[in-house]
């Protein structure tokens, strides 16, 4: 009867769960990533040039969803990957609840700018990803484009803007922190939760991920996006009719990071990955790969639109504060949006 089929079917399913071979720097390396495949691809290519025997597998989810997936897997005491790629604040908050991550100091961590390093020694900084405004050049002329975050509340942009939803995206926490903590504390009194209430009144559209927003902007469906630089990079590579604005108030920069699990099936490969991340080789391709600024102090860097790092005002976010206040911030955001 059908028993034969059935058996091979479940055997095949079981085979997927098989343990990863664990010898020095070969075998599969499984990475949970909040960074899209197209960004990871360049990094993996560089990694494999150094470690050709490691087979890197990536599973991508938007940050906040990945956070929840990890939370459940850690509760089941069964993390399914070796390495996770999330922003520093998210890894910190996971590490605070579960002792599931292995502390590891990669070779070359000393070269990383000190302000970006994780004091707990759990997450390894990969690059700094900054927020800016992306706009559709078919719909909006360069002269007419907004120049500041505050411009987005102007009536002419009604129903034109999209931003990420903190119930789904982790990165947007950096922007929330920037608008409600950093700017008010640095003399910009016009910014507060009320800013989001104004955006809501202006018909801002909330989306689950920055990639969706990038496509909505490129298509002209939402010609203005509160966007991460990495996605502006993708648009540029793809030839989308879009351009970027560096808002005058400055850009919050979150630290994209990686960390490895204590129970990794392939710790050698995981450590090799973390070593690679902070190596000058990786940092050199970081702007093209993750589309963000390198963390090594000595690398010169210009953004895709030609802007030099030194010409823009990047505000490094307070990852520890965000990790601690994540839920309260999300609730305050929802309250501001329903006013």
């Amino acid at each position: 009867m059908k028993l034969g089929n059935l058996k091979t079917g479940s055997v095949a399913v079981l085979a997927l769960l098989g343990p990863a071979a664990a010898s020095a720097q070969d075998g599969p390396l499984q990475i949970y990533s909040a960074y899209p495949d197209e960004h990871m691809a360049a990094l993996i290519e560089g990694f494999n040039a150094k470690y050709p025997d490691v087979e890197v597998q990536v599973s991508v989810q938007p940050g906040e969803q990945l956070l929840s997936t990890l939370e459940l897997e850690l509760r089941a005491n069964a993390p399914q990957a070796d390495v996770v790629g999330l922003n520093q604040a998210s890894i910190s908050s996971l590490a605070a609840d579960h002792g599931a991550f292995a502390e590891y100091q990669p070779e070359g961590i000393a070269e990383v700018r000190e302000s970006l390093r994780d004091p707990e020694g759990v997450s390894v900084p990969a690059c700094v990803n900054v927020y800016l405004i992306q706009y559709n050049t078919n719909a909006i002329n360069a002269e007419a484009a907004p120049t500041s975050w505050m411009d987005l509340t102007a009536p002419e942009w009604e129903n034109q803007i999209a931003m990420a939803d903190p119930s789904s995206s982790q990165s947007i926490q950096s922007f929330l922190w920037f608008v409600t903590q950093y700017l008010p504390q640095n003399g910009q009194d016009a910014f507060d939760w009320d800013y989001f209430t104004q955006l809501q009144a202006n018909g801002v559209r909330l989306e689950g991920s920055h990639g969706t927003i990038r496509d909505l902007t490129a298509a002209g469906e939402r010609p203005l996006g509160i966007q991460l630089l990495a996605n502006g990079q993708t648009s540029a590579n793809r030839g989308d009719p879009t351009s970027l604005v560096w808002p005058t108030e400055g850009s919050p920069g979150e630290v994209s990071s990686f960390a490895m699990f204590e129970e990794s099936d392939n710790p050698e490969a995981a450590q090799a990955w973390l070593d690679f991340i902070v190596s000058p080789d990786a940092q050199a391709i970081m702007p093209d790969a993750l589309g963000c600024a390198p963390v090594l102090s000595e690398i010169d860097y210009a953004f895709p639109d030609g802007t030099a790092v030194s010409d823009v005002n990047i505000v490094p976010v307070d990852s520890a504060w965000i990790a601690e206040n994540r839920e309260a911030q999300t609730e305050a955001f929802q309250a501001a949006m329903s006013n």
Partner: peptide, 8 residues
């Protein structure tokens, strides 16, 4: 996931 930006 592809629709939501991871590919476009």
């Amino acid at each position: 996931s592809v629709w939501n930006g991871n590919g476009g």
